Amino acid sequence: MAGAAARKMDMDKAPPRASRLQADLAARILRMLKDQGAGPGHHLVELDLCRHFDVSRTPVRGALKLLAEQGAVEARANRGYVLRGPVTEAPDLDVTNPEDEEDQRLFIAIAEARNQGRMPDQCSQLEVARLFGAKLPTVVRVLRQLAELGLVERKPGNGWSFTLPINSARARAESYAFRAVIEPAGLLESTFELDREWLDRIRAQHLAFRKRKWRDTLAVELFAINADFHEGIARCSGNRYFLDAVQRQNKLRSFMNIQWINGAERVIDSIDEHLEIMDAMEAGDNQKAHDLMKAHLVLARDVEATV
């Protein structure tokens, strides 16, 4: 009896388990630091990480806390977190969670249902559980993940409301049409100033990802790299309205692109197109970069239309 009580006390004291989003984000932060060659004492700025990975403060804080528990970073008074030593490798973190696969299946199922118009804008936790035949604890965890991404909002009681419209072929086409106007134009702004530190980092990420063998579970990471590339160019434009437009589009696309449906070959082609745009920017030929960006977005639209 005493042993059972002690175990219960230990369970009560145990820290909450990291969510999949926090664990994935922590691993991505380590990979970013490795690509940057960051050294001991490197300051991790919370807001910069939010912008870089296009997530809110909540998952970033969770990821940094997880990295601190793993010994990769440490908290400093009034300074947030700093890197304890150089990142020589970025393995998966030790956050084994037997429920992860179940959570991921439900996450993808919700994305598919929303994209196909089979799920309403508002629903309760019990309705989600019935619709997908999922356990209620799984539903709660996944809805919280979606909330961290800014895709759903909690309503009074057990209700949840999606913050983005149901996806459709027309919505995708309209998004690409809008981006094909806005994103290339940012490259020709008189206020454009290339951030070479960002360029070196994002190029290294693209080259490293290009070497990896494609699997469907890399879709979220691919989107993060893709979003960083497009948002980074908008930030270089020096035009706050271009940047705001691209950030809004990235938020919309984050749920639409939870699955990569264009095949492994298109992954390589897309990365190569990005690299060609980077080369043009680095050479100071923004007109060429403009033309390449427009062609890239039009081609991406056409490829998706045929899938």
Rank of each mutant, 00 (worst) to 15 (best):
A4Q: 13
A4H: 11
A4T: 10
A5T: 08
A6F: 11
A6L: 15
R7H: 02
R7W: 02
R7I: 04
R7T: 00
R7L: 12
R7G: 00
R7V: 03
R7Y: 01
R7Q: 07
K8I: 02
K8N: 01
K8G: 00
K8R: 15
M9W: 04
D10G: 00
D10T: 04
D10N: 05
M11W: 08
M11D: 01
M11H: 10
M11N: 10
M11T: 04
D12K: 09
D12N: 07
D12C: 07
K13V: 10
K13F: 06
K13R: 10
K13E: 04
K13L: 13
A14W: 02
P16Y: 01
P16R: 11
P16M: 11
P16T: 01
R17C: 01
R17F: 03
R17T: 04
R17M: 09
A18C: 02
A18P: 06
A18T: 04
S19N: 05
S19G: 05
S19T: 11
S19L: 12
S19A: 06
R20S: 07
R20Q: 06
R20P: 09
R20Y: 11
L21W: 07
L21Y: 09
L21A: 04
L21S: 01
L21N: 03
L21G: 01
L21C: 03
Q22D: 02
Q22A: 13
Q22L: 06
Q22W: 01
Q22G: 02
Q22P: 06
A23H: 11
D24M: 11
D24T: 03
D24F: 07
D24Y: 05
D24N: 07
D24A: 06
L25C: 02
L25W: 05
L25S: 03
L25Q: 04
A26H: 10
A26K: 13
A26E: 00
A26W: 08
A27C: 08
A27M: 06
R28V: 06
R28L: 10
R28P: 02
R28G: 03
R28D: 03
I29Q: 05
I29M: 13
L30A: 04
L30Q: 05
L30V: 08
L30M: 12
R31C: 04
R31L: 14
M32G: 01
M32E: 07
M32W: 14
M32S: 07
M32I: 08
M32T: 05
L33D: 01
K34F: 12
K34V: 05
K34Y: 06
K34S: 09
K34I: 07
K34G: 06
D35P: 00
D35L: 13
D35A: 08
D35G: 01
D35K: 14
Q36C: 13
Q36V: 07
Q36M: 15
Q36D: 02
Q36N: 11
G37C: 14
G37R: 15
G37W: 14
G37E: 13
G37P: 15
A38Y: 03
G39L: 15
G39V: 14
G39D: 01
G39A: 09
P40T: 08
P40F: 10
P40Y: 07
P40A: 13
G41Y: 06
G41Q: 08
H42R: 15
H42E: 05
H42D: 01
H42P: 04
H43R: 15
H43Y: 13
H43N: 13
H43L: 14
L44P: 09
